[in-house]
Amino acid sequence: MIQYRFYPTLLNVFSRYLHGGNLSVQELIDTINRVPTPTTAAQERGVSFEEAVVKGTGEDRFDAEIIRKVRKLLPRPIVDTQVYCQLEIDDVLFYGYVDLIGKFKAVDIKTTGSYQPGRYVHNHQNLYLHALKRKGIKLMEYVITAFSADGQSEVFVESYALTHPIDRQIEEIRLFKSFLEEHRPLIVDKKIFVAPGEDADARRSQSS
Rank of each mutant, 00 (worst) to 15 (best):
E88G: 02
E88K: 13
I89W: 04
I89V: 15
D91L: 04
D91S: 08
V92A: 03
L93N: 14
L93G: 01
F94E: 07
F94R: 00
F94G: 05
G96T: 06
G96E: 09
G96R: 07
G96P: 10
Y97C: 00
Y97W: 05
Y97V: 02
V98S: 01
V98T: 13
V98C: 14
D99I: 02
D99L: 03
L100I: 05
L100E: 03
I101L: 10
I101Y: 04
G102N: 10
G102F: 10
G102S: 09
K103T: 07
K103A: 11
K103W: 06
F104N: 14
F104Q: 12
F104H: 13
F104A: 13
K105Q: 06
K105H: 10
V107M: 07
D108R: 08
I109S: 05
K110R: 11
T111M: 08
T111C: 10
T111D: 09
T111R: 09
T112L: 04
G113H: 13
G113C: 10
G113L: 15
S114C: 02
Y115M: 07
Y115A: 10
Y115Q: 11
Q116R: 15
P117N: 11
G118I: 09
G118L: 12
G118P: 09
G118A: 08
R119C: 10
R119A: 12
R119Y: 09
Y120T: 07
Y120W: 09
V121G: 00
V121Y: 03
H122R: 09
H122E: 09
N123Q: 04
N123S: 15
Q125K: 15
L127W: 01
L127Y: 03
Y128E: 03
L129Q: 02
L129K: 09
H130Y: 00
H130K: 02
H130Q: 13
H130A: 03
A131Q: 10
L132P: 07
L132F: 11
K133R: 14
K133M: 14
K135A: 13
G136R: 08
G136C: 11
I137P: 02
L139W: 06
L139I: 13
L139A: 01
L139D: 08
E141L: 01
Y142G: 10
V143N: 02
I144V: 15
I144G: 01
T145L: 12
T145K: 13
A146Y: 04
A146R: 15
F147H: 11
S148Q: 12
D150F: 04
G151N: 14
G151K: 14
G151E: 08
Q152Y: 02
S153K: 03
S153V: 03
S153H: 15
E154T: 14
V155I: 07
V155E: 08
V155A: 11
V155L: 10
F156S: 04
F156V: 12
V157H: 10
E158T: 01
E158S: 07
E158A: 06
S159G: 03
S159P: 00
